[in-house]
């Protein structure tokens, strides 16, 4: 159960090796937190992340469990299993792939990316939501991206999948609100992380820790959407309305 200060006792990270996801987990650590579950495909990497968490938070139980975002049909069982060991207070959906810039010609590769980033995220959110609805409480944190706010020609598969998951998560949040389930959509800008290593940072680039701090503040305030950094909300409300010929020629594209 969350306590009155908004501190959870149990946090599940789907995409258990995600830099942003792990930063959010760390930001949720408090004297109230009792257990963290890192659910990931690469359980060896998950164990390394778990060892770091255990070292910093010896009072918290940290478990690693296998979970493949690309196999939506396994998600409900995985989440039900997690729910069987106690209430899930916060479930962070943080698995996604960036793909290759300019990768718009390989149809099969694009479909694989869309499966993880959209179909896999949808099924994970619903699977988690079903557990939280039975509990009558809990929050799903969905990592969207500003890339979905106006999709760039450089990586339309990634941007398109984020646009899709962002819209889905908002609608789903409305659908389950009456069951006590809260959905928070996080829209980070360019984040320096393992996923973006070697890429040219976009303006207003941020770090996983700063995204995590904004996310936790939004959770405590009960908000449904958070931009990180906050200024991107205004930047993108302008970019979104640019005429296509202008947008196409912008250097960020």
């Amino acid at each position: 159960m969350n306590n009155g200060l908004g501190e959870p006792q149990r946090v599940v990270l789907l995409g258990g090796t995600s830099d942003i996801g792990l930063a959010i987990v760390r930001a949720l650590c408090s004297p109230a937190l009792r257990r963290i579950d890192l659910a990931c495909r690469d359980t060896a990497a998950g164990e390394r992340a778990a060892a770091d968490l255990r070292a910093d938070h010896p009072a918290v139980e940290v478990e690693v469990v296998g979970f493949d975002g690309a196999q939506p049909e396994t998600h409900q069982t995985a989440l039900d299993d997690l729910g069987r060991t106690g209430d899930l207070d916060v479930v962070i959906v943080a698995f996604a792939q960036l793909g290759e810039d300019g990768g718009v010609r390989d149809a099969a590769a694009a479909a694989r990316l869309a499966t993880v980033n959209f179909a896999g995220n949808v099924s994970a959110i619903i699977a988690a939501g079903n557990v939280l609805r039975r509990q009558g409480h809990g929050t799903v944190v969905v990592l969207s991206s500003v890339a979905g706010e106006r999709v760039r020609q450089a990586n339309p598969v990634y941007g398109g999948s984020k646009a899709g998951i962002d819209g889905f998560a908002q609608g789903y949040g409305d659908a389950v609100a009456a069951d006590g389930v809260h959905v928070l959509v996080v829209r980070p800008g360019f984040v320096h992380s393992a996923m973006t290593a070697g890429r040219q940072p976009a303006p207003f680039a941020t770090t996983p820790d700063r995204v995590a701090a904004a996310t936790v503040a939004a959770l405590r305030a009960g908000r449904r959407m958070v931009w990180a950094p906050g200024v991107l909300r205004y930047v993108f409300s302008a970019l979104r309305h640019l005429p296509a010929p202008v947008w196409r020629k912008l250097p960020i594209n």
């Binding site: 159960m1 009155g4 908004g6 009558g136 009456a178 006590g180």
Partner: peptide
């Protein structure tokens, strides 16, 4: 009825029948 219930401090509402 399915209702959100909280204590007098209204800090952590949850839903119950």
């Amino acid at each position: 009825t399915r209702e959100a219930l909280a204590g007098w401090g209204s800090t952590s509402p949850t839903v119950a029948d």
